[in-house]
Design a binder for these strands. Structure first.
Lengths: 296, 296
DNA sequence: CATCGGTGGTGCGAAAACGATCCAGCCGGA
DNA sequence: TCCGGCTGGATCGTTTTCGCACCACCGATG
């Protein structure tokens, strides 16, 4: 009989493409992965990977195995999810995923309040760039900005929150300098993968330089605060920053709607219900700020 | 993340009803099973068994887990089966299951011939009472006597063999003694769970004693050879035994049909094809013997 | 052409899992 | 009532597994 856990290692390699990346995802040493997949191949009597210098690539046999290994994973995840859904104790782990900008500029105080309110709940905030997969139970609750309601996965339960607006911002000092006629080039600051939104216009100011590209929102904010130029930001970020002002003559535009997403079985959990109720109350209170009405 | 192999241990306990029986099926020490299921319960945070003095009984949570654990097993078995089906080398393991009586009274010489013909095939003969489950890959080929074709599992591939007849037998000495008028009681020898078939009659002799019950076919044959009474036997058993004769005045009756059963993916294997072709040739040659025509 | 980041592979000492064994409790039959 | 067979549980020495530190190799890059 094969060791079922070896199949888990096999899956990690098949997805990661290399033994070392699989080891990273699994949180073990790469030699362990090496040994276990070798053992699995020996027991099955089939070579499932081509061992190339560039990594492990699935063979035809490996492809067939992959399909059923994924089935095993599905069952295993459902098993965990179902057990977790039975857990009605308040104490335990609660994993929340949200975009880095929501965490750092808006909700961290609220997350802290919640943690203080429920000291027995162990919280884990996943605010990395990649969106965690709720179905795979990488997180229990997701706070996401959704542009089109149709893009929401059907298997998730969504609780609609306030709408989120954005505007065009510039550093207060730089706006004054512009009005004074400083010749320094004024640039669009854009996140490489996003570009300039259709709805953005330059308003009172005029672009005089080439775009300034950054890779993440934190750098974007730092750049606009330095007076490098103008950029689009969610209102709750721009309005809250005393160094920034909206560029006169520009409009607000809807970014999307904030949704609190949970997954079937885990939604029944007391921890999850406590959190979603708490966070939706807080979000409702933030509605004017999120809509960009706080400075009207 | 849970250890997937622990789920396999969980399944074994859930089915065996106790840690020790699970350890027996898994081929490990019972303390290992104890530790691994404890670890699984700890990681899931749920008690899946009631620890009774009489054994482990599933809790409600355990019942829910069982369902998905069985799904994992199905995927795992399919995985093994699919990989095994790709294996076209002659050398390797071949597991055959048949009833003890077929093995010991008819086919063992043929199995030995096949093993001599293919020394590179490692053979395993499962002739225990319980019928091995082909779908679970406990065996690769099953030789079974089927009374009603409709009882064949649909997912198995069947190769129809000769028909099998049975008759009523008595020890040669005892028949002579009966004719001489010995007053010793003459009994029906029956296997407890079977009883006396509808079609059996006593023919020339007359029952004078209470039934003699045995639990298996080997004991039944030993009893009738000792002259305890009469019994129904497959013709290939009774006719081949020089100590036994058919009771005059009794008829033959069809027991059922011999089928060679294989399972989807494993059927493609060279080993399995070699064996099924070999054994069906041998069975065809046995057809008169099996039909009880060898003494006509 | 040296370097750096990536790959798989290999020995060795530490850590974890395992098997053997013993124990206590329960239960049914002699 | 005692005994044997069953149950789970705890302990202890041994075996297996794991993580670490290396190595060789490859390709891109400065």
């Amino acid at each position: 009989m094969i060791d079922w856990d070896d199949v888990r290692y096999f899956l990690a390699i098949a997805r990661g493409g290399s033994v070392r990346s699989a080891a990273g995802h699994l949180g073990v040493n790469h030699s362990t992965v090496l040994r276990r997949v070798a053992r699995l191949e020996e027991r099955l009597g089939v070579q499932m990977f081509e061992k190339l210098p560039s990594g492990y690539r699935l063979t035809a046999a490996g492809e067939e195995v992959l399909e059923l290994a994924a089935q095993m994973e599905t069952s295993s995840l459902q098993l965990e999810t179902r057990v977790f859904g039975r857990d009605q104790s308040v104490r335990g782990l609660l994993r929340v995923t949200l975009t880095p900008i929501l965490a750092s500029h808006l909700l961290m105080p609220d997350l802290a309040d919640f943690a203080r309110l429920h000291p027995e709940i162990e919280m884990e905030i996943l605010s990395s760039g990649e969106l965690a997969n709720l179905t795979n139970r990488e997180a229990d609750v997701a706070l996401r900005v959704v542009y089109d309601r149709k893009t929401l996965p059907l298997n998730l339960h969504g609780l609609k929150g306030p709408e989120l607006f954005g505007g065009v911002y510039i550093s207060r000092d730089r706006l004054a300098a512009w009005r004074a006629g400083t010749p320094d080039p004024l640039r669009w600051i854009v996140i490489s993968m996003h570009g300039i939104p259709d709805w953005a216009n330059e308003g009172e100011v005029r672009i005089t330089g080439v775009p300034f590209r950054v890779t993440d929102a934190a750098a974007e904010i730092a750049a606009v605060r330095q007076g490098l130029g103008i950029t689009t930001l969610p209102c709750f970020v721009g309005d809250a920053d005393p160094l920034l002002v909206r560029v006169p003559g520009t409009d607000l535009h809807m970014y999307g709607t904030l949704w609190t997403l949970t997954q079937g079985e885990t939604r029944k959990t007391k921890r999850v219900r406590l959190f979603t109720e708490f966070v939706s109350r807080r979000l409702a209170a933030y509605a004017p700020l999120l809509a960009g009405l706080s400075r009207d």
